[in-house]
């Protein structure tokens, strides 16, 4: 009988650097086959968590198991079946991409060397594999980092802000690559400070702020609890538009600090309000999305003081979101 062992299981994990607590009693579980996001602004503790996962630093308290094994029990063997990179992947610039992979395959042992051509194809670098890495763009190095990870034939792929520093095309390609890998059954743990990225790729998410977990659950649950989208509205008569807003209880209309109005509503309610403006002779000159719903929730969760629960809207309270016991 096989036992379902989570890919990653953290319990009460704490890491301090002097007086600063970088990771504060974090509990987290990533099941096999899952695409899991760790989301948070810079300094939230995401990379510190990943450093502990890779054994680069040791936790001050709590336990961290990877496929059921802790570093104390297994040492570097804890990382068997695990691959990825922290911050940006780095290589020897005086060697070609293929030569770098050859070296790393030698370090990995097993059958890693036989997979070099295949992983270069997966990340679409076969055509530049014999160029020196020193001449690679940032995006190519990121993709080579994914290739170097896949060499290990991992069961868990850990990517720390894989789209960071990429141009829009690079971001699109990287997200597509991660989605392809996840579709193949690979467990992916991805850290990001970009809500869109996590929403697009991940099944479940943990949101961190100053080292603490402020939310975790599924993306669908998060989406259901997100506040209304916020639009910037420019009209021919803002005063009249504000008054009309009072007649539509499902929408919230207020003055924008930079001029014009802020419209918060679900799409159907916003449509009704805009039609009403037209019927009242108020021309709509511009309407554009300022903050997406999930992004708005992300800001609420990560920019308010966790000690002051009243600052967080009720629908964003983690207990309400997840139904989890604290």
């Amino acid at each position: 009988m096989t036992v379902a062992v989570p890919a990653v299981e953290a319990s009460g994990l704490v890491k301090r650097f002097g007086a600063r607590t970088a990771v504060d009693r974090v509990d987290l579980r990533v099941d096999v086959g899952e695409v899991y996001g760790i989301l948070g602004p810079n300094g939230a503790g995401k990379t510190t968590f990943l450093r502990m996962l890779f054994g680069l630093i040791r936790p001050d308290a709590g336990t961290l198991r990877v496929f059921g094994r802790t570093w104390g029990e297994a040492g570097p063997r804890m990382l068997d079946g695990v691959a990825g990179f922290i911050e940006s992947p780095r290589f020897y610039p005086y060697l070609s991409g293929r030569r770098n992979l050859n070296l790393l395959a030698g370090l990995d042992g097993g059958g890693a060397g036989s997979r070099i051509d295949a992983v270069l194809d997966v990340v679409d670098l076969a055509g530049r594999a014999d160029d020196k890495v020193g001449g690679y763009s940032f995006g190519m190095r990121q993709r080579l980092g994914v290739a170097a990870s896949l060499l290990r034939d991992p069961r868990l792929l850990v990517l720390d802000e894989p789209a960071n520093g990429l141009d829009p095309a690079g971001i699109r390609d990287m997200r597509a690559l991660v989605r392809r890998l996840a579709a193949g059954g690979l467990t992916v743990l991805l850290s990001s400070h970009n809500m869109d990225e996590v929403e697009e790729i991940c099944d479940n998410v943990t949101i961190m702020r100053t080292g603490r977990v402020v939310y975790h659950g599924s993306i669908d649950q998060l989406r259901a609890q997100a506040p209304d989208p916020s639009h910037r509205l420019l009209t021919s008569d803002d005063a009249q538009a504000l008054r009309l807003g009072g007649d539509h209880p499902a929408v919230s209309v207020s003055a924008h600090p930079d001029g014009g109005l802020v419209l918060r509503a679900q799409p159907a309610d916003a449509d009704a309000y805009i039609l009403a403006l037209g019927q009242a002779g108020v021309a709509v000159r511009a309407l554009h999305l300022e903050v997406a719903p999930l992004e708005s929730l992300f800001f609420m969760l990560t920019e308010t003081d966790p000690a002051a629960g009243h600052d967080v809207p009720a629908q964003a309270q983690p207990d309400a979101l997840t139904g989890a016991a604290s």
Binding site: P6, E9, R25, V26, D27, L28, R29, V30, D31, E34, Y36, N204, T206, R212, V213, V214, Y215, H216, G217, S218, P306, A307, A308, G309, V312, Q317, P318, D319, L321, T322, G323, A324, A325, S326
Partner: peptide, 11 residues
Amino acid sequence: MTTPATPATTA
């Protein structure tokens, strides 16, 4: 605000 970190949610 409490920290809702329980494995059950992802399971």
